[in-house]
C-alpha cells in the first residue's frame, strides 16, 4: 500500500507557480526527504498533502484517503511536526499532550496511558508537570515530536524538524526519528540540511521553483549529478589561480566568495599543483549531497 501518492500536483498564487506538476510515492516504512532552497515549494507541497490548501489540479491520496476531500479522515492517522513550534504556552507539558489527544477524539484514559511512553521518548520523563516556558528550544521540539505521535500515526510529516537547534539537540531528534522508522512508521521530511537528509532519508528529491529536479537515494544523487572528488581552494590569489590553472586541471570550477570549488574524477594533478603554492590552502574531500544541491539549485541567495 502506498502511504502517500501524489500525481501531477499544481498550485499557483496569481502568476506565481509554487508547485508545478509534481509526482510522489511513499511506501510504508520509508523515510523520504524533500530538499530545496527557501521558496522552492516544499512547505506548500506539505500543506497540500495535509489538505490545508486546495490544489489547482492533480491528485493526492494519503494512506489511501483522498485529500483534500476527506482531509479530516486522513489527518486522523497522520502526525505533523510544523516548522515553527506551536505548543500551548499556557499549558504544562502533560496538558499539551492531553489537549492535543482530545483533538483526535481519544479518551482521557487512552491519552493518559500513552503519555509516560511519549515523555520518555521525548527525554522529558518526570517533567510532565513543568511549565512550557521553562523548556529550551530542543525540549520544545522534542515535545512537538511527541505531540505528533499522540494518535500513533502511520505517517509523520516533519517540516524542517531541526532548524534552529544546536548539534546535540539535532542528533537527539535524528536518533528518535530512526527509532520511529524502526517501528515501521513512514516519514516525510523537508529540510535544507544535507547532513540531515543524508543520515535519515532512504530516498530524496530536490525541489526548486516548484518542480522536482532530481530524485533517488543520497548515493545515487551524488553519483548521477556530480564528479566524485572536490577540492576547495582558498587564500589570496585563489581566484587568479582558478583562471590560470584550476580550469585546466579540474573538470569544473566554481567560485563562491573567496573559495574556489574544483570538481574532478581524479584530484592527483590538482593536488600536486596546489602543494607547490604556499599562498593557497586547500581541502580535498569526496563530493557530498551539498555539492549536488548547489549544482542543481545554484549558489545564488534565495530569500
Amino acid at each position: 500500500m502506498s502511504h502517500l501518492r501524489v500525481r501531477a500536483l499544481r498550485k499557483s498564487y496569481g502568476a506565481n507557480v509554487v508547485v508545478n506538476g509534481i509526482d510522489l510515492d511513499l511506501a510504508r516504512g520509508e523515510c523520504f526527504g524533500l530538499l530545496g532552497p527557501n521558496g522552492a515549494g516544499k512547505t506548500t507541497t506539505l500543506r497540500l498533502c495535509l489538505g490545508l490548501t486546495e490544489p489547482d489540479s492533480g491528485e493526492i491520496s494519503v494512506l489511501d484517503v483522498p485529500v483534500p476531500q476527506e482531509a479530516r479522515r486522513a489527518r486522523a492517522r497522520i502526525g505533523v511536526v510544523p516548522q515553527m513550534d506551536n505548543l500551548d504556552p499556557d499549558f504544562t507539558i502533560r496538558e499539551n499532550l492531553q489537549v492535543y489527544g482530545r483533538y483526535f477524539d481519544l479518551s482521557a484514559a487512552e491519552v493518559n496511558a500513552r503519555i509516560p511512553a511519549l515523555l520518555e521518548f521525548a527525554g522529558l520523563a518526570n517533567r510532565g508537570d513543568d511549565n512550557l516556558r521553562a523548556l529550551s528550544g530542543g525540549m520544545k521540539r522534542r515535545l512537538t515530536l511527541a505531540r505528533a505521535l499522540i494518535n500513533d500515526p502511520d505517517l509523520i510529516f516533519l517540516d524542517e524538524p531541526t532548524t534552529g537547534l544546536d548539534p546535540q539537540a539535532r542528533h537527539l531528534i535524528w536518533q528518535r526519528l530512526r527509532q520511529l522508522l524502526a517501528q515501521g512508521k513512514t516519514i516525510f521530511l523537508t529540510t535544507h540540511f544535507m547532513d540531515e537528509a543524508e543520515r535519515l532519508c532512504s530516498r530524496l528529491a530536490v525541489m526548486d521553483h516548484g518542480r522536482m529536479i532530481a530524485s533517488g537515494t543520497p548515493r545515487e544523487l551524488v553519483e548521477r549529478h556530480i564528479e566524485p572528488q572536490v577540492v576547495e581552494v582558498f587564500g589570496d590569489g585563489a581566484g587568479a589561480w582558478a583562471k590560470e590553472q584550476g580550469t585546466r586541471l579540474a573538470e569544473r570550477c566554481e567560485t563562491a566568495g573567496e573559495t574556489v570549488f574544483c570538481y574532478v574524477h581524479d584530484a592527483a594533478a590538482l593536488i600536486d599543483d596546489l602543494a607547490a603554492r604556499a599562498e593557497l590552502r586547500y581541502v580535498h574531500r569526496p563530493a557530498n549531497l551539498e555539492d549536488v544541491f548547489l549544482r542543481l539549485t545554484g549558489r545564488d541567495l534565495r530569500d
Partner: peptide, 14 residues
Amino acid sequence: VQKTWEAIMNAPLD
C-alpha cells in the same frame, strides 16, 4: 501569535 489554530488544523479538525 501562538499559531494554536495551525496546530489544531494538523489534527482531524478543519
